[in-house]
Amino acid sequence: MVNARNLTVATTLLEEGASALRDVLRTRCVRRDEINALGLKSIVSGTLTTCLMGAIVGMLTQP
């Protein structure tokens, strides 16, 4: 049977659940930005490392 107390409890649980879900989504968005920034840094560092290794090999194999 539905009464005012049950509705109050259900409303409170829904509000707490929505708040928790909002916090999780906000945390995921922050993490997504961090992961994207790390991806760009790794691409740049990989490119620089490849160029440096090519330059070293080129210097060592000169006739």
Rank of each mutant, 00 (worst) to 15 (best):
S42R: 13
L40T: 01
R26I: 05
G17E: 02
E15C: 11
A18C: 11
T11C: 04
G39E: 03
T50S: 15
V24H: 09
R5G: 07
T11D: 02
T61R: 12
A10H: 03
P63V: 12
I43C: 05
L60R: 12
L38H: 05
R28W: 07
N36W: 06
V44Y: 12
R31M: 09
I43Y: 02
L25N: 06
S42F: 06
D33C: 12
E15V: 11
R28S: 00
R26K: 09
L38S: 00
C29Y: 05
T8V: 15
E15P: 00
L14E: 14
K41G: 02
V9F: 15
R32W: 10
Q62L: 06
R22T: 00
N6D: 10
V2R: 12
T12C: 08
G46S: 14
I43G: 04
T50R: 15
V24Q: 06
L7C: 15
P63F: 04
N3V: 03
C51I: 15
N3E: 05
V9L: 14
T11Q: 06
R28D: 01
L60E: 12
V30N: 03
A55K: 13
T47C: 05
L52M: 10
D33A: 14
I43R: 06
C51E: 15
S19C: 06
L7E: 10
R5P: 01
M1P: 01
N6Q: 11
A18F: 13
G17N: 02
L48C: 00
E16F: 06
L52D: 10
C51D: 13
E15G: 04
E34A: 10
R31N: 04
V30Y: 06
L52H: 08
V30C: 03
V9C: 07
A37I: 01
A18R: 14
T49D: 07
L38C: 01
G17K: 00
L25A: 07
T27Y: 04
I35F: 02
N36G: 09
V2W: 07
R22E: 00
M1V: 01
T11E: 04
L40I: 04
L21S: 07
L14N: 15
L25F: 05
T11G: 03
L14F: 11
L38R: 01
G54V: 14
S45F: 06
R28E: 01
L52Q: 09
T12W: 11
S19D: 09
C51S: 11
G58Q: 14
M53V: 09
R28F: 01
V44Q: 15
A10Q: 11
M59G: 13
V57N: 02
T8G: 13
P63T: 05
T47L: 08
T61M: 08
I35M: 00
G17A: 03
S45H: 07
A18S: 13
G58L: 11
R32S: 12
L21I: 03
T11A: 07
G39W: 01
R22A: 00
G58S: 10
G39H: 02
Q62E: 07
V9D: 09
I56S: 14
L7A: 10
L60K: 15
G17Q: 02
S45P: 02
G17M: 00
V30T: 09
R31S: 06
G58W: 05
T12E: 13
A4N: 06
A37E: 04
N36V: 09
M59D: 08
R28L: 03
L40G: 01
T11Y: 08
I43S: 08
N36Y: 12
R26S: 14
L13D: 08
S19P: 01
D23N: 05
N36A: 11
R32C: 05
G54T: 15
N36S: 10
